[in-house]
Design a binder for these strands. Structure first.
Length: 277
DNA sequence: ACGAGAACCTGTTTGC
DNA sequence: TGCAAACAGGTTCTCG
């Protein structure tokens, strides 16, 4: 489900309510996530205070007061939702981990496809850990621009669509936003990545930032599974110009061409063959 | 070393 | 109606 804007929205929702709280109790209802949870997972969390919540790519990083970081990835269908503990809540069938923070609040990790993961990693091992070692630049960070992007794309003999999904090129993009970004940058998803240089790379980098910022401002896109930490839906899906619009009209002024869907690297790509070069 | 495709897992939608 | 196939926001492994 979640790409960078959804993860960032969840981060903000969690941060507003759980920073400074102490983990009272952890219930592991199912431990075979993408990376199996260790036997002592609950014990290592219990009693810890949550100091900060950051995001790197599509990972949430909850820094704890003992130097460990609780890493959460939502995979394709994961949710991290806050629930009031007082209302004798019935746990859903795919609620694999429930973390009680303070007396009255629970963080519920719900993920029916189990492509998501949770892991406890020491803060000082984070950078070199296999999950993080090969991640590219943060697209909303200060050191991302057209030149950086052009350098990452040079020599890559794969379509630009596939290159942007590669987390070592830019961190945090996924299938929906790559389609929207390429449309905004007026670049064909089939264009060879290596040919995106100079002005095209500048345009693309600008589109990356613009789309991500607009999506975050809308609370992300709610398709099937995604909700904010509060349970509210995002509404950026109403602003998609190509994703999910196969057979409909291109919204570019004066175009009106039909949006097409093709398969690239086993993923759907939506684009306008008239607008994008 | 690189890129394409399959695999992982479950639920929902679509088509015959 | 029923069943099978297609499809879904991600990542990682294998194979050529």
């Amino acid at each position: 489900m979640p790409e960078l804007p959804e993860v960032e929205t969840v981060r903000r929702g969690l941060a507003a309510r759980i920073i400074g709280r102490r983990i009272q109790r952890v219930e592991v209802r199912r431990s075979d996530l993408r990376i199996p949870l260790p036997i002592d997972f609950a014990d290592r969390l219990a009693g810890r205070q949550i100091e900060t919540i950051d995001r790197r790519a599509k990972y949430l990083l909850l820094r704890l007061d003992d130097g460990q970081v609780l890493v959460v990835h939502l995979g394709m269908s994961g949710r991290l939702v806050l629930a009031d503990r007082s209302s004798a809540r019935q746990a859903g069938p795919h609620e694999h981990v429930v973390i009680q923070v303070g007396d009255d609040l629970e963080i519920c990790f719900d993920d029916h496809r189990r492509f998501g993961l949770m892991a406890l990693i020491p803060e000082n091992e984070l950078q070199t850990h296999a999950l993080f070692a090969r991640l590219g630049p943060e697209p909303l960070g200060p050191d991302f621009n057209g030149a950086v992007l052009a350098a990452a794309l040079s020599g890559r003999r794969t379509p630009i669509k596939a290159a942007l999904l590669d987390q070592s090129v830019v961190a945090g993009l996924g299938n929906i936003y790559v389609c929207e970004i390429l449309f905004r940058a007026r670049l064909s998803p089939k264009r060879l990545a290596a040919t995106v240089q100079g002005g095209r790379a500048d345009r693309l980098a600008a589109a990356v930032r613009a789309i991500l910022l607009a999506a975050i401002a809308s609370g992300g896109s709610s398709l099937r599974d995604y909700v904010q930490a509060s349970g509210e839906l995002g509404y950026f899906q109403h602003k998609w110009l190509v994703y999910g619009r196969e057979g409909q009209r291109c919204k570019t002024r004066g175009c009106g061409h039909t949006i097409r869907r093709i398969i690239q690297s086993n993923r759907s790509t939506f684009y306008c063959s008239l607008c994008l070069r």
